[in-house]
């Protein structure tokens, strides 16, 4: 009998956990929204986090962007050969980088690095009672810890994306010139051919939202940490998975909205 009911019990438990988790997330978001205005006074913490989240991620973002641009040039040249004029290599690279590859790959790279770091840092503070200590000193952890990280992330992701876009296009051009055999002038003419500044704006809107997802995942799972080192590891894993999945899922919905708003059609 117990064997028969076990699957129902397990399903029920999962549903309860999901509802409870949604409730916790809603409370977390509500409190964050309320703490943002007073939390803006922690300017020094905001700049510290800009360095941690933005500046420290820059080398990683630049290296990945360089190779993403390069491989995009190789792939497009391979697929165009014999069917599409190679001038369109520059067009394809700039369009795909500005609106999709730049913001999404930057967010995935930063999400892995920063999402994990935020969850581990806040999770360790939770299990070593540092968050309780903040409370006893009459300091609100949400205002002091989460707001500066959240604001820094939504501010730094678009900036990193601008660098990523630039380096990816340069990487694409270097590969196009040296490996595909088209001139830099042709590549640049291709870039200008169908250039639309809204491609860049659209990508930056995505980056802004992805910054929020990364900070929320890291901080939320950090706050939920229980136990010791194992709990911190579990929170870190959940934060990285949540930020990566969140970025890819929201990317689709953002694309729908951005294409409607900026380009007037899909």
């Amino acid at each position: 009998m117990r064997g028969l009911t076990a699957p129902f019990a397990a399903t029920g438990e999962q549903v309860i956990n999901m509802v409870a988790g949604s409730g916790r997330l809603a409370i977390f978001l509500g409190r964050l929204a309320r703490e943002i205005p007073p939390g803006l006074r922690y300017v020094h913490l905001f700049f510290e986090q800009c360095v941690q989240i933005g500046l420290a991620s820059l080398p990683l973002v630049l290296i990945t962007s360089l190779f993403v641009g390069g491989v995009a040039a190789l792939q497009s040249a391979y697929q165009f050969k014999g069917y599409v004029p190679l001038i369109y290599v520059g067009t394809v690279i700039s369009k795909s980088v500005f609106i999709e590859l730049g913001p999404v790959l930057t967010a995935l790279v930063v999400g892995g690095r920063v999402g994990a770091a935020l969850a581990a840092e806040i999770g360790t503070m939770r299990v070593t009672e540092q968050i309780d200590a903040l409370e006893t000193l009459a300091i609100r952890p949400m205002r002091y810890l989460v707001v500066p990280r959240f604001i820094a992330a939504i501010f730094m992701l678009p900036m990193l994306t601008v660098f990523a876009n630039t380096i990816a296009v340069l990487g694409g051009m270097v590969v196009a010139v040296n490996r595909v055999g088209i001139s830099s002038v042709t590549f640049q003419r291709g870039m200008k051919l169908l250039f639309d500044v809204n491609d860049i704006y659209g990508g930056l809107i995505k980056a802004f939202v992805f910054g929020a997802i990364i900070a929320l995942s890291g901080c939320y799972y950090g706050f939920q940490t229980r136990g010791g080192a194992e709990g911190v590891g579990e929170s870190t894993k959940k934060a990285v998975v949540a930020s990566c999945v969140g970025i890819l899922v929201l990317d689709y919905f953002l694309a729908e909205v951005i294409f409607q708003l900026l380009f007037g059609a899909r």
Partner: peptide, 11 residues
């Protein structure tokens, strides 16, 4: 759960 605890304090 710290979120729940703080919520009970009306934050």
């Amino acid at each position: 759960d710290p979120v729940g605890q703080e919520a009970r304090h009306g934050e």
